[in-house]
């Protein structure tokens, strides 16, 4: 190992990265999202997707869903670091439980005429995307599904006149009768 001159021990880590979806139940109070995001940027963790919304208004509870990547050791760290924050009630690794459903919603604007327009509509039908706005030269499709399905749909729209995309990010929930 050829070390550069440094007061720190520099090492290569070779563990493969994994992608995990974490559901984080937090007290809905000022700054709570900043704390969570600050943790990720401050400690150099990745955020692939992040969604947040109040889920139980009376109890002031919000649910944050984060898709992140890292080595198994880093993923474990992220969970512990989140869990020890004061306003965090619970952290659940939806990927580890392997019994969760993930969905994302996207609105996809496509502009075109003639054959392209027909093709876009046909594909939207195949993907069960709904038309939520239309002009004589454009559509806005609403599509719901897992991230892969939405990526695929967007890729197909690209040559047909894709203008822009707005995505919600991933929401996840466990299967079966039990709550989190």
């Amino acid at each position: 190992m050829n070390q550069p001159a440094s007061a720190y021990f520099i090492e290569d880590r070779h563990d493969p990265n994994e992608t995990h979806t974490l559901a984080v139940l937090v007290q809905n109070e000022p700054g709570v999202l900043a704390r969570v995001i600050g943790l990720f940027s401050g400690r150099g963790y990745n955020i692939e997707s992040l969604t947040v919304s109040e889920t139980e208004a009376q109890k002031h509870l919000s649910r944050i869903t984060i898709v992140t990547t890292g080595t198994p050791m880093v993923i474990q760290q992220i969970k512990h670091q989140l869990d020890r924050m004061i306003p965090v009630y619970q952290v659940v690794d939806m990927t580890e439980t392997r019994r969760s459903i993930e969905r994302e919603l996207a609105m996809v604007k496509v502009r075109g005429q003639g054959e392209h327009r027909v093709e876009a509509l046909r594909l939207a039908d195949a993907f069960r995307a709904r038309v939520i706005d239309a002009t004589t030269e454009s559509f806005v499709f609403e599509i719901t599904g897992n991230t892969d399905k939405i990526n695929e749909f967007i890729d197909l729209m690209r040559p047909l006149g894709l203008v822009e995309v707005s995505r919600t990010g991933v929401a996840a929930i466990g299967r079966g009768p039990e709550g989190m």
Binding site: M73, Q76, Q77, D83, R84
Partner: peptide, 11 residues
């Protein structure tokens, strides 16, 4: 006392 200290640097 801090779970995040476990397996942070050394398994």
């Amino acid at each position: 006392i801090d779970p995040s200290s476990i397996n942070k640097n050394i398994r």
